[in-house]
Simulated assay, not measured.
Amino acid sequence: MDLLALTDFNLVARHGGFGRAARATGRPKATLSRRVAELEADLGLRLLERGARTLKLTEEGRALYERTAVLLTEVDQTAAEIASGGARPRGRLRISAPMLFSQIAMGKLAAGFALAYPEVRLEVTTEDRAVDMVEEGIDLVIRVNPDPDESLVGRIFVRDRLLVVAGPGLARPEDGTPVPAVVRGSADRSATWAMRTPAGPSRIAVDPVLGLSSLVMVRDAVRAGVGAGRLPVSLVSHDLADGLLVQWGEVEGPEIALWALYPSRRLLSARVSAFLEFLKAAFPLGTSEELAAYITS
């Protein structure tokens, strides 16, 4: 059965004629007449008795109208609710997030979202690699400074900065002697770090004595006094305030931007829209200090 033809039949039945239905809806009278005739041919039933001036439902037409009018009204109301955001998000929502953000903030975010939207089944995986969202069934990804991707759209929800920090017992040498350093990843023995200080731009030579795969581990090692490290404000602001770490300068280079990305579609699901709004509410300013406060609160 043609749903559009059934809808047009209901319009004519509700308004009591083709002319009235056409005037009320702005639909051409000829189109309504053709659609109803097609529905009658499809069903093999006469649904309307067409007189010279009057039109009335046959017994079969009245039965069809009474059984389908309520259903079509519910369909219209549901579509209107979804379009206006009134429908409550439900179903599975799969998110991929980077390791550091997952370790320091994603658990709290996920718990808050689950409490706010109990009908959504949230699944979060930790991936620093670029995932194939369509192939792997991911609805939304959180990434740090992602490469441009024409198939994805999104927004920045938090900006962070890198600082050069060290334990209070490690003095910065003034004679160019390499400073022991804790780095993420493999150790580059010829590394230098450029940074901004109150006195102006500065560069220090570093001797990477320890390479670790996680910035949380880097922070812990720096805090233990192994060497200096480059760490985001959000991860070390509490330690700086407590005197567990001291700041040597701010790393030169682009800022750290956390993006929420999703496939480039004209219409977003209510689940993804709800999570984007939840992120916006959690970080209304989107600053590193706000993220640090969120982590420690």
Results as ranks from 00 to 15, higher is better:
Ala221Ser: 11
Arg92Phe: 04
Thr58Tyr: 02
Phe9Arg: 03
Leu4Ser: 13
Ala257Lys: 12
Ile204Leu: 15
Ala187His: 00
Ala270Pro: 04
Thr296Gly: 02
Met195Cys: 12
Ile82Ser: 11
Ile256Asn: 00
Gly167Val: 01
Gly91Ser: 08
Arg161Val: 14
Arg46Asp: 12
Phe278Gly: 04
Arg184Met: 13
Thr54Phe: 12
Thr58Gly: 00
Leu32Gly: 00
Phe101Lys: 06
Pro173Ile: 07
Ser288Gln: 10
Val158Ser: 08
Pro178Tyr: 08
Ala187Ser: 14
Phe101Glu: 07
Gly286Ala: 06
Arg223Asp: 01
Gly44Leu: 03
Leu215Glu: 14
Ala166Asn: 00
Thr78Phe: 11
Pro28Asp: 10
His15Tyr: 15
Lys56Met: 06
Asp2Ile: 06
Pro198Gly: 10
Arg46Ser: 13
Thr126Cys: 12
Ala105Phe: 09
Gly227Thr: 02
Val12Ser: 05
Asp8Tyr: 11
Leu267Glu: 12
Arg189Tyr: 04
Asp220Tyr: 07
Glu60Ile: 00
Val164Cys: 10
Leu279Glu: 06
Arg159Glu: 15
Phe275Asn: 01
Pro201Phe: 10
Val236Phe: 05
Ala293Lys: 09
Pro98Thr: 11
Ala181Gly: 01
Val216Ala: 03
Leu11Gln: 13
Asp76Ser: 12
Pro208Asp: 06
Arg46Phe: 03
Ala13Thr: 07
Val158Phe: 08
Val183Ser: 02
Arg23Tyr: 07
Val246Arg: 15
Gly185Asn: 05
Gly243Thr: 09
Asp242Arg: 15
Trp193Asn: 02
Pro180Asn: 06
Phe283Ser: 08
Thr125Arg: 13
Ser84Phe: 06
Glu150Ile: 12
Glu40His: 01
Gly176Thr: 03
Ala97Asp: 09
Arg155Ser: 13
Ala79Arg: 14
Phe9Glu: 02
Ala221Asn: 05
Leu3Lys: 13
Gly225Thr: 00
Ser190Thr: 13
Leu57Ala: 07
Pro284Asn: 00
Tyr294Pro: 03
Ala292Asn: 04
Arg94Gly: 08
Gly26Ala: 10
Ala116Asp: 13
Val141Tyr: 04
Leu267Pro: 04
Glu59Pro: 00
Ala114Lys: 15
Glu250Pro: 01
Ala274Asp: 05
Glu49Ser: 10
Arg223Gly: 06
Thr25Ile: 05
Asp160Arg: 05
Lys108His: 13
Leu122Tyr: 03
Leu109Arg: 09
Gly112Arg: 11
Lys280Tyr: 02
Ala293Arg: 15
Pro118Ser: 10
Asp76Gly: 02
Ala194His: 14
Val272Phe: 00
Leu71Trp: 05
Ser214Glu: 11
Gly112Asn: 09
Gly112His: 07
Ala171Ser: 12
Leu212Thr: 04
Val165Leu: 06
Glu123His: 11
Met195Ile: 14
Arg271Thr: 09
Arg143Met: 11
Ala292Met: 03
Thr287Tyr: 04
Ser288Thr: 06
Gly211Trp: 00
Leu285His: 14
Met217Gly: 02
Ser273Ala: 15
Val226Cys: 06
Ala37His: 08
Asp76Met: 08
Arg161Asp: 13
Asp207Trp: 10
Pro284Ile: 09
Gly286Phe: 05
Ala63Thr: 11
Arg20Glu: 14
Leu39Trp: 03
